[in-house]
Write a protein that binds this DNA or RNA. Structure first.
Length: 567
RNA sequence: GCGCCUGUAGCGCAACGGAUAGCGCACUAGCCUCCGAAGCUAGUGGUGCAGGUUCGAUUCCUGCCAGGCGCACCA
């Protein structure tokens, strides 16, 4: 709905601007292309500046060498005249304010149509199509299956899942994928860690190396094996290599299950689990390196095989095959990304932790060396979240396996608050997560503030005693109060917010939008009664708040937060 | 040393390069015989420093200061 009106307005503005320019004596430097670039339509922050506004006059003023205010006045006059003669125009009035802003007020009918469309097709509200069904692969979390997920992974999961929902709203065809590092050094160490703990349980005195996994869960897994008589005798019958393999397999399967359960409880589900081991067996690594070799981006030096990433702006070339013959992490990763494109994805988005930011240039280089556009890959770095308890940061040292897990946060503050809190700041900014605040059930806690608005509306609708069908016929022109108009404007801006999130590849703006929408509702509620003796007005207000409820619940759903009917 | 992120009111944070820099907490004073007071209203108070680009800079560029994180032939 927002997109539809914006588009309509854009073409009206183009027409008005061109018509204005045509009246000028030979305007220099202006072309249609520049107009598309400078015609930016915004939602002004003050409502007195209109529902939508454009600063096109400032940019145009430089080109045609006239005063911005005069340019604005000229365009506004044309737009105003066009709108008056065109009943389909969404423009109610046009004003020139400040040094040359063109402020546009929309007809009430736009908002009434908006409310009607929200109420008649709630599930479609906020959906639009800039994606044109293009296929996007969104890879996130992808934590090594060597232990429970940490808070860092939790934030990545929250961001990835919400972003997937946003992109789906924006018309993309999104696949959520988890890249499973189920082989390699870390996995070998996992197997050995469990095995050593197992031997300890058998009464053996072992020297447990520092670089092995220290967490208690390792002991738990070892005990699971040790406590089962049949398993114990099976293990004792295995050869050295088989034993190593057995513990490794057991560990990966168990921890993968732990991770999947944690994600499920967090409300995050993946479409694909992509196994690195399977990738290795498929021969795709050799194929990918072969391709790069053919293109001239592979060379040998010091007994190792290198990828010439500097050809695409990386600081230095990177080893893909070590002098001992084994691959570095980069080799399968190149093959993995090549496979993403081979599977038909046009756009590949990776969500990584901050420890990977140095890795971006070489991955970007790899994508380009594979013959893809560099914009085909977007990498989102999710900065760390620091947990606070009682004003003090909770230490997150990974030494000795002592790190705060997703599970702990989930147990402590619940799914709704944790999902929301992880998204409250810009994704690439640090986040302070106040555990105490997240648990609070007061207006200080934004999650409850929003959910409370939703529950309040649910309560009113339930108590109204008027059937949904009966509300349909409401006369919306009865909605004349400022608070009612503010609410309609806020609902209108939902689409703008989702589009912004999709463009920025960041869901955080939605958390801010929802707080302001909830605020607009609370203000309306305190100033006006919904259930009045005036049946017509009551119906109109019920219609309005039902649309608010839909906006709130759609927004919360995108973030992975529930919309309770009662609290 | 290099790279990424951050610096806005006492605290936590908003502001796609736009207009009078907003919101919450805290503090002060108010609002329930009335749909949920988990709510609302009013008041107090601010862009780290120095330059630059721009009609316009909290936003972009350079330098400095301060804080957080990361820099393997690990994954």
């Amino acid at each position: 709905m927002y997109q539809k009106i914006e588009l309509q307005l854009r073409s009206l503005l183009v027409k008005a601007t061109e018509s204005y320019l045509a009246d000028l004596p030979a305007s220099s430097g202006y072309t249609k292309d520049t107009l598309a670039d400078i015609l930016i339509i915004d939602i002004p922050k003050e409502k007195e500046f209109g529902h939508l506004a454009t600063s096109v006059a400032f940019r145009l003023a430089g080109i045609v060498r006239k005063n911005p205010k005069d340019v604005a006045a000229g365009i506004a006059a044309k737009l105003d005249a066009d709108s008056r003669s065109d009943s389909a125009s969404p423009v109610k009035s046009v004003e020139v304010k400040g040094a040359g802003f063109i402020n546009i007020f929309l007809k009430d009918d736009c908002f009434f149509a908006l409310l009607r469309s929200v109420n008649s097709r709630p599930e479609e509200f906020g959906a639009f199509d800039i994606g044109r069904s293009r296929r996007v692969l969104l890879e996130f979390v992808s934590a090594n299956p060597t232990g429970p997920l940490s808070v860092a992974h939790a934030r990545q999961a929250a961001v990835g899942d919400a972003l997937a929902n946003i992109l789906i709203h924006a018309g993309y065809s999104v696949t959520k994928e988890y890249y499973l590092n189920d082989e390699g050094n870390q996995i070998n160490i996992l197997g050995r860690s469990i095995r050593l703990r197992y031997r300890e349980l058998s009464g053996e005195k072992v020297d447990f190396p520092e670089d092995h996994y220290q967490g208690d869960y390792i002991v738990g897994l070892a005990r699971e094996l040790y406590d089962d008589q049949a398993t114990r005798s099976k293990i004792s019958g295995l050869g050295p290599e088989e034993t190593e393999w057995f513990f490794l397999e057991f560990g990966v399967a168990k921890i993968l299950k732990i991770i999947q359960d944690e994600l499920a409880d967090f409300g995050v589900f993946f479409d694909e689990w992509y196994s690195q081991r399977a990738l290795g067996k498929s021969g795709k690594i050799e194929e990918a390196l072969g391709y790069l070799g053919k293109e001239g981006y592979i060379y040998e030096s010091d007994g190792a095989v290198w990828f010439k990433s500097t050809a695409f702006g990386d600081d230095k070339d990177r080893v893909v095959r070590k002098s001992d013959g084994s691959y570095t992490y980069l080799a399968p990763d190149i093959a993995y990304h090549r496979d993403k494109f081979d599977r038909g994805y046009e756009k590949v988005i990776n969500i990584w932790g901050p420890d990977h930011h140095g890795y971006i240039p070489r991955m970007r280089a790899a994508v380009q060396a594979l013959g893809k556009d560099k914009d085909a890959l977007s990498v989102i770095i999710v900065q760390l979240a620091t947990l606070f308890k009682g004003g003090q940061p909770v230490p997150m040292s990974t030494r000795k396996g002592q790190y705060v897990t997703l599970r702990e946060v989930l147990t402590e503050v619940g799914r709704d608050a944790s999902r929301f809190f992880f998204l409250m700041r810009k994704t690439d900014s640090h986040l302070d997560f106040d555990l105490e605040l997240a648990k609070k059930q007061t207006s200080e806690n934004p999650v409850y503030y929003i959910q409370y608005a939703h529950a309040r509306i649910a309560g009113i609708l339930a108590g109204a005693g008027i059937s949904g069908a009966d509300i349909e016929g409401a006369d919306l022109s009865l909605l004349k109060e400022n608070e009612e108009k503010d609410l309609m404007k806020a609902i209108f801006e939902f689409g703008y917010c989702i589009e912004l999130c999709a463009k920025q590849l960041d869901p955080y703006a939605l958390t801010i939008y929802l707080q302001s929408l909830a605020g607009a509702f609370h203000r309306f509620y305190d100033n006006h009664k919904v259930l009045t003796s005036d049946t017509g007005l009551t119906k109109a207000r019920l219609f309005l708040i039902r649309a608010v409820k839909i906006a709130l619940s759609n927004g919360l759903a995108i973030l992975g937060v529930s919309s309770p009917e009662r609290m």
